[in-house]
Design a protein around this nucleic acid. Structure first.
Lengths: 297, 297
DNA sequence: AACACTATCCATAAGTATAATATATGATTT
DNA sequence: AAATCATATATTATACTTATGGATAGTGTT
């Protein structure tokens, strides 16, 4: 009967559980504690004690005697309203988490290199958007190195970039692209670039450029690079306009038919990997997106 | 690492406490679990375990490794948002309950008999309203029996009515009123009502009427009642118009000076009690109202 | 009507199971 | 070497059950 005046916020928060709020709601909605306890699947003393504990935490009586029943006080109704709100929030949260676990809601941030965005993934993006309209799909196009940095700093969930995956990143190969020499229109044989040839290549420092440099070296070519661009469309145009030679994946170079007949030697292969942080938390939406990508490849 | 799929709503609600939500919020706002634990005044393992327990209940990972720190997953941010909302609700509830405990907010339902409302309590009502403008003060005027019924059925918090208090009701005397015979204007001696006098009295069945009947009997009078009313103003008017005799408290009868000189014998005394349910939960607002009433008396 | 009789409801007590926390320690990362 | 988080174990606190008592309301009997 003597309720300790433990009415500090910390005491209240520290001691009250969602279960107790559930008990309170049931006790308020059922005709008696006994009926409420039965509906909750616990014994009547357990319910009585739990409610007394809530009273103690709240610092005010929540029930008062009414014959052999007990009824809510005005303070009790105040606390009941709180309980209803919190329990409704909890149910909504549970729904959200479940929807997210099913991949039906939430955010999916995918990073991809421009070649992927242009030639490989558009259909998959469209398909994913159709199948999961409630997912907030955010796409970022950048170079491999930048994408991997963003992946590491939790700014992206899934990255399609040139592999193989480095330390702390795990991935699966989605596509393997050959990289061929392409000659500018004219007399020269695409398979025999002259020594004085000028080259338009991917930017120095990029993953693809590193692969290309190694491959060209194996072919005995030390390219004279007069133009660098991270944009493969730019490189293709340079070649098509006769301004130099390049090394490109056919998917890029032959998108317009101009360069199809100008393909030269196979310089190297680059692999497009789908990558995530090693040991990252499960991500149903990323999993689904990747599933679509692998199914298409 | 292997989180059991305990992702049912009942499991979530059953296991999560407000304290864990507090822990989650602190862990999200502090740079490390260690710092958060220190800020919470608990040890780091206690915090780690509590958060792991929440993860288990939620069925999804809330944190993921980031170097030697851990950071929230998207699901974790979802749960954090829930925690913020609930904790804000809890703080607001605490404020409301505290304000109510101080008598500064809430509802106060006071019942009173009309005599009290007319002659005794108006100043107190005005004073209370001035001092506690945030309290929703609801006044009900009715006969004693009806008021006590409403008190018993929790429709009123405090009642000013004719005592003494019955079983299940406890009260304190606020005012003792004499009940005098009042004679109609004319030749008759107010102290000697004739046998054939016609009387206008409180309604049969009312507390005051019962007291009056007993008192008149002691004076050897068996009144011939030609008019009954629960409204003492009506009775006063009847007497003033010469239609009969009555028994009234001077506060009623002499409100207008008409009947002052027509006062006869003291029939009885009735006591105005402030009454509450016996064993009712503390009610700071009722207490304050009663304090004002007693101070004025 | 008054009385006991019975059923219902809630509180309390005591014992037991579960959960929360602290201390000590290990693994990993910077 | 320092910092961070996880794990193991012991201890304490909390939650629950069973058993029981007190109060109230309904029911039948004298």
């Amino acid at each position: 009967m003597t309720t300790e005046p433990a009415s500090s916020l910390a005491d209240f928060i520290g001691g009250v559980s969602l279960r107790q709020l559930l008990y309170l709601r049931m006790a308020a909605h059922q005709p008696s504690f006994t009926a409420a306890a039965a509906a909750l699947g616990i014994t009547q003393p357990a319910l009585s004690q739990a409610l007394l504990e809530v009273e103690r935490r709240a610092g005010v009586p929540l029930f008062e005697a009414n014959g052999r029943h007990r009824r809510l006080t005005e303070d009790g109704r105040e606390l009941l309203a709180f309980a209803e709100r919190v329990l409704a929030e909890a149910a909504a949260l549970r729904d959200r988490l479940d929807a997210r676990a099913r991949g039906e809601a939430g955010t999916l941030r995918v990073g991809m290199i421009d070649a992927a965005s242009l030639y490989v993934l558009p259909d998959i993006i469209r398909e994913y958007r159709e199948q999961h309209p409630a997912v907030d799909l955010q796409l970022h196009v950048d170079a491999t190195a930048a994408l991997l940095t963003q992946l590491r700093t939790f700014e992206l969930d899934l990255v399609f970039a040139i592999g193989p995956p480095e330390n702390g990143i795990e991935g699966i190969e989605v596509l393997r692209e050959p990289l061929h020499v392409y000659a500018p229109p004219g007399r020269d044989d695409p398979h025999a670039p002259p020594l004085h040839a000028e080259w338009a290549l991917y930017e120095s420092g990029s993953h693809t450029r590193a692969i290309i440099d190694v491959g060209l070296g194996r072919l005995g070519i030390a390219p004279l690079v007069t133009l660098q661009s991270g944009n493969p469309e730019v490189l293709r145009q340079m070649v098509a306009l006769g301004l130099g030679w390049s090394v490109l994946p056919p998917a890029v170079a032959e998108g317009a038919p101009v360069l199809a007949s100008r393909r030269g030697a196979l310089v190297a292969q680059r692999s497009l990997f789908a990558m995530r942080r090693a040991g990252a938390a499960p991500h149903p939406r990323a999993d689904e997106f990747l599933r679509l990508a692998l199914a298409a490849a």
